[in-house]
Protein backbone atom coordinates (compact mmCIF):
# COMPACT_ATOMS: atom_id res chain seq x y z
CA UNK A 1 0.00 0.00 0.00
CA UNK A 2 1.33 3.45 -0.82
CA UNK A 3 0.44 6.99 0.04
CA UNK A 4 -0.49 9.78 -2.26
CA UNK A 5 -0.97 13.52 -2.29
CA UNK A 6 -4.06 15.07 -3.76
CA UNK A 7 -3.37 18.70 -4.67
CA UNK A 8 -6.58 20.59 -5.35
CA UNK A 9 -5.41 23.73 -7.15
CA UNK A 10 -8.98 25.06 -7.22
CA UNK A 11 -8.56 25.73 -3.52
CA UNK A 12 -5.03 27.13 -3.67
CA UNK A 13 -4.72 30.83 -2.76
CA UNK A 14 -0.99 30.94 -3.41
CA UNK A 15 -0.20 31.78 0.22
CA UNK A 16 2.96 29.66 -0.04
CA UNK A 17 2.73 28.35 3.50
CA UNK A 18 3.61 24.95 2.02
CA UNK A 19 6.75 26.31 0.40
CA UNK A 20 8.00 27.75 3.69
CA UNK A 21 6.94 24.73 5.76
CA UNK A 22 8.98 22.52 3.44
CA UNK A 23 12.08 24.65 3.98
CA UNK A 24 11.49 24.70 7.71
CA UNK A 25 11.04 20.96 8.14
CA UNK A 26 14.04 20.14 5.98
CA UNK A 27 16.02 23.03 7.44
CA UNK A 28 16.92 24.24 3.98
CA UNK A 29 18.69 27.57 3.51
CA UNK A 30 16.92 30.50 1.92
CA UNK A 31 18.14 31.55 -1.48
CA UNK A 32 19.28 35.09 -2.19
CA UNK A 33 16.50 36.35 -4.41
CA UNK A 34 15.39 39.60 -5.95
CA UNK A 35 12.00 40.78 -7.05
CA UNK A 36 11.89 39.83 -10.72
CA UNK A 37 8.62 41.55 -11.44
CA UNK A 38 6.51 38.74 -10.00
CA UNK A 39 5.52 37.37 -6.61
CA UNK A 40 6.93 33.97 -7.60
CA UNK A 41 10.25 33.32 -5.90
CA UNK A 42 12.79 31.70 -5.88
CA UNK A 43 12.82 31.51 -9.67
CA UNK A 44 13.01 27.73 -9.83
CA UNK A 45 13.27 24.53 -7.83
CA UNK A 46 16.81 24.00 -6.62
CA UNK A 47 18.99 21.81 -4.46
CA UNK A 48 17.66 23.77 -1.50
CA UNK A 49 14.09 24.36 -2.75
CA UNK A 50 12.01 21.18 -3.04
CA UNK A 51 8.67 22.86 -3.30
CA UNK A 52 7.74 25.94 -5.30
CA UNK A 53 4.40 27.61 -5.88
CA UNK A 54 4.25 28.61 -9.54
CA UNK A 55 2.10 31.68 -10.20
CA UNK A 56 0.84 32.49 -13.67
CA UNK A 57 -1.42 35.24 -15.03
CA UNK A 58 -3.51 34.19 -18.02
CA UNK A 59 -6.11 36.12 -19.92
CA UNK A 60 -8.63 34.54 -22.24
CA UNK A 61 -11.54 36.42 -23.80
CA UNK A 62 -10.83 39.34 -21.52
CA UNK A 63 -11.14 37.18 -18.41
CA UNK A 64 -8.11 37.34 -16.19
CA UNK A 65 -6.97 34.38 -14.12
CA UNK A 66 -4.16 34.05 -11.63
CA UNK A 67 -3.38 30.37 -11.23
CA UNK A 68 -1.19 28.69 -8.67
CA UNK A 69 0.66 25.40 -8.81
CA UNK A 70 2.38 24.05 -5.71
CA UNK A 71 5.03 22.09 -7.60
CA UNK A 72 6.90 19.09 -6.17
CA UNK A 73 8.12 15.58 -6.97
CA UNK A 74 5.25 13.32 -8.13
CA UNK A 75 6.58 10.16 -6.45
CA UNK A 76 5.81 8.18 -9.61
CA UNK A 77 4.39 4.70 -9.26
CA UNK A 78 7.12 3.50 -11.61
CA UNK A 79 9.74 6.20 -11.13
CA UNK A 80 11.89 6.76 -14.23
CA UNK A 81 14.62 8.28 -12.06
CA UNK A 82 14.89 5.07 -10.08
CA UNK A 83 14.85 3.00 -13.24
CA UNK A 84 17.51 5.19 -14.73
CA UNK A 85 19.76 5.15 -11.68
CA UNK A 86 19.57 1.40 -10.98
CA UNK A 87 21.36 2.09 -7.73
CA UNK A 88 19.24 1.45 -4.64
CA UNK A 89 21.78 3.14 -2.42
CA UNK A 90 21.15 6.38 -4.32
CA UNK A 91 17.48 6.28 -5.34
CA UNK A 92 14.99 3.91 -3.83
CA UNK A 93 11.33 3.65 -3.15
CA UNK A 94 10.02 3.16 0.37
CA UNK A 95 7.44 0.49 -0.41
CA UNK A 96 5.54 1.22 2.79
CA UNK A 97 4.88 4.86 2.02
CA UNK A 98 5.47 5.06 -1.71
CA UNK A 99 8.07 7.81 -1.20
CA UNK A 100 10.80 7.99 -3.82
CA UNK A 101 13.93 8.87 -1.87
CA UNK A 102 17.20 10.41 -3.06
CA UNK A 103 20.23 9.79 -0.82
CA UNK A 104 23.67 11.40 -0.62
CA UNK A 105 24.85 8.63 -2.93
CA UNK A 106 23.11 10.36 -5.82
CA UNK A 107 26.46 12.11 -6.03
CA UNK A 108 27.73 8.99 -7.77
CA UNK A 109 25.03 9.06 -10.44
CA UNK A 110 25.02 10.88 -13.71
CA UNK A 111 22.97 13.77 -12.46
CA UNK A 112 21.91 15.17 -15.82
CA UNK A 113 20.73 11.76 -16.91
CA UNK A 114 18.54 11.42 -13.85
CA UNK A 115 17.14 14.94 -14.32
CA UNK A 116 16.55 14.20 -17.98
CA UNK A 117 14.71 11.01 -17.10
CA UNK A 118 12.15 12.86 -15.00
CA UNK A 119 9.00 13.57 -16.99
CA UNK A 120 8.28 16.46 -14.60
CA UNK A 121 11.76 17.96 -14.54
CA UNK A 122 12.02 17.86 -10.75
CA UNK A 123 15.44 16.76 -9.40
CA UNK A 124 18.06 19.49 -8.96
CA UNK A 125 21.77 19.05 -8.40
CA UNK A 126 24.29 20.61 -6.05
CA UNK A 127 27.66 21.81 -7.27
CA UNK A 128 29.11 18.38 -6.46
CA UNK A 129 26.42 16.59 -8.45
CA UNK A 130 24.34 15.39 -5.48
CA UNK A 131 20.64 15.40 -6.30
CA UNK A 132 17.74 16.51 -4.14
CA UNK A 133 13.95 16.79 -4.31
CA UNK A 134 10.80 16.35 -2.21
CA UNK A 135 11.05 13.27 0.02
CA UNK A 136 7.35 13.16 0.96
CA UNK A 137 8.53 14.08 4.49
CA UNK A 138 9.10 10.35 4.79
CA UNK A 139 10.47 10.79 8.31
CA UNK A 140 7.27 12.52 9.39
CA UNK A 141 5.03 10.11 7.53
CA UNK A 142 6.62 6.96 8.99
CA UNK A 143 6.04 8.53 12.41
CA UNK A 144 2.37 9.08 11.77
CA UNK A 145 2.56 12.78 10.87
CA UNK A 146 1.37 14.52 7.74
CA UNK A 147 3.96 15.97 5.36
CA UNK A 148 4.86 19.51 6.45
CA UNK A 149 3.27 21.12 3.38
CA UNK A 150 -0.02 19.33 3.98
CA UNK A 151 -0.05 20.10 7.68
CA UNK A 152 0.36 23.83 7.06
CA UNK A 153 -2.12 24.28 4.21
CA UNK A 154 -5.06 26.44 5.39
CA UNK A 155 -7.47 25.81 2.53
CA UNK A 156 -7.51 22.07 1.93
CA UNK A 157 -5.45 22.34 -1.27
CA UNK A 158 -2.86 19.89 0.05
CA UNK A 159 -4.20 16.47 1.00
CA UNK A 160 -2.34 13.31 1.91
CA UNK A 161 -3.29 9.75 2.78
CA UNK A 162 -3.60 6.24 1.43
CA UNK A 163 -3.57 6.25 -2.34
CA UNK A 164 -7.01 4.73 -2.70
CA UNK A 165 -8.50 7.40 -0.46
CA UNK A 166 -6.74 10.18 -2.32
CA UNK A 167 -7.81 8.86 -5.72
CA UNK A 168 -11.35 8.66 -4.52
CA UNK A 169 -11.19 12.18 -3.02
CA UNK A 170 -9.69 13.46 -6.28
CA UNK A 171 -12.47 11.93 -8.35
CA UNK A 172 -15.10 13.22 -6.01
CA UNK A 173 -13.69 16.75 -6.21
CA UNK A 174 -13.37 16.52 -9.98
CA UNK A 175 -16.99 15.57 -10.36
CA UNK A 176 -17.97 18.71 -8.41
CA UNK A 177 -15.46 21.12 -9.91
CA UNK A 178 -16.24 20.12 -13.49
CA UNK A 179 -19.70 21.60 -13.12
CA UNK A 180 -18.15 25.06 -12.87
CA UNK A 181 -14.99 24.45 -14.93
CA UNK A 182 -15.67 22.26 -17.93
CA UNK A 183 -11.98 21.64 -18.64
CA UNK A 184 -11.15 20.42 -15.14
CA UNK A 185 -9.04 17.29 -15.02
CA UNK A 186 -6.79 15.15 -12.85
CA UNK A 187 -3.23 15.13 -14.10
CA UNK A 188 -1.56 11.75 -14.82
CA UNK A 189 -3.51 10.23 -11.95
CA UNK A 190 -2.74 6.64 -12.91
CA UNK A 191 1.01 6.97 -12.94
CA UNK A 192 1.84 9.30 -10.06
CA UNK A 193 1.29 9.59 -6.34
CA UNK A 194 0.91 13.36 -6.45
CA UNK A 195 -2.39 13.96 -8.19
CA UNK A 196 -3.21 17.48 -9.30
CA UNK A 197 -6.71 18.73 -9.96
CA UNK A 198 -6.54 21.61 -12.44
CA UNK A 199 -9.12 23.68 -14.27
CA UNK A 200 -7.01 25.31 -16.98
CA UNK A 201 -4.90 23.74 -19.73
CA UNK A 202 -1.97 22.11 -17.84
CA UNK A 203 0.67 23.99 -19.82
CA UNK A 204 -0.80 27.29 -18.53
CA UNK A 205 0.35 26.35 -15.03
CA UNK A 206 3.78 25.11 -15.96
CA UNK A 207 5.55 23.49 -18.86
CA UNK A 208 6.16 20.28 -16.93
CA UNK A 209 2.85 19.91 -15.09
CA UNK A 210 1.67 17.04 -17.25
CA UNK A 211 4.01 14.37 -18.55
CA UNK A 212 2.07 13.70 -21.71
CA UNK A 213 1.77 17.38 -22.47
CA UNK A 214 5.48 18.07 -22.58
CA UNK A 215 6.42 15.37 -25.04
CA UNK A 216 8.02 13.23 -22.36
CA UNK A 217 5.46 10.41 -22.20
CA UNK A 218 6.71 8.12 -19.43
CA UNK A 219 6.53 4.85 -21.24
CA UNK A 220 8.05 5.97 -24.48
CA UNK A 221 10.59 8.05 -22.67
CA UNK A 222 11.66 5.23 -20.35
CA UNK A 223 11.91 2.73 -23.14
CA UNK A 224 14.14 5.07 -25.05
CA UNK A 225 16.25 5.71 -21.96
CA UNK A 226 16.76 2.03 -21.28
CA UNK A 227 17.70 1.38 -24.86
CA UNK A 228 20.19 4.20 -24.93
CA UNK A 229 21.70 3.68 -21.50
CA UNK A 230 24.78 1.64 -22.51
CA UNK A 231 25.69 4.26 -25.04
CA UNK A 232 25.11 7.27 -22.81
CA UNK A 233 27.21 5.68 -20.09
CA UNK A 234 29.98 4.93 -22.48
CA UNK A 235 29.93 8.48 -23.76
CA UNK A 236 29.89 9.81 -20.22
CA UNK A 237 32.87 7.63 -19.22
CA UNK A 238 34.79 8.68 -22.28
CA UNK A 239 34.27 12.33 -21.48
Amino acid sequence: MSNAFFIDTTRCTGCRGCQVACKQWHDLPAEETENRGTFENPPDLSFSTYKLVRMRETETDGKLKWIFLPEQCRHCIEPPCLETARDESAIFKDEKTGAVIFTANTKNLFADEIIESCPYHIPRKAADGTLAKCDMCNDRVTNGLLPACVKTCPTGTMNFGEREQMVSLAQQRLSLVIKKHKNAQLVDADSVNVIYLVTEPPADYHEFLMASANGHGITRHMALRKMMRPFTRAIHQLS
Binding site: R16, V20, A30, E34, N41
Partner: peptide, 12 residues
Amino acid sequence: QSWLMELQPQMF
Protein backbone atom coordinates in the same frame (compact mmCIF):
# COMPACT_ATOMS: atom_id res chain seq x y z
CA GLN B 1 13.42 35.92 8.46
CA SER B 2 15.35 34.57 5.48
CA TRP B 3 12.68 32.09 4.34
CA LEU B 4 10.18 34.92 4.05
CA MET B 5 12.65 37.34 2.50
CA GLU B 6 13.33 34.70 -0.11
CA LEU B 7 9.65 34.93 -1.12
CA GLN B 8 9.29 38.74 -1.03
CA PRO B 9 12.77 40.20 -0.97
CA GLN B 10 12.16 43.79 -2.01
CA MET B 11 9.88 46.76 -1.91
CA PHE B 12 7.80 46.74 -5.08
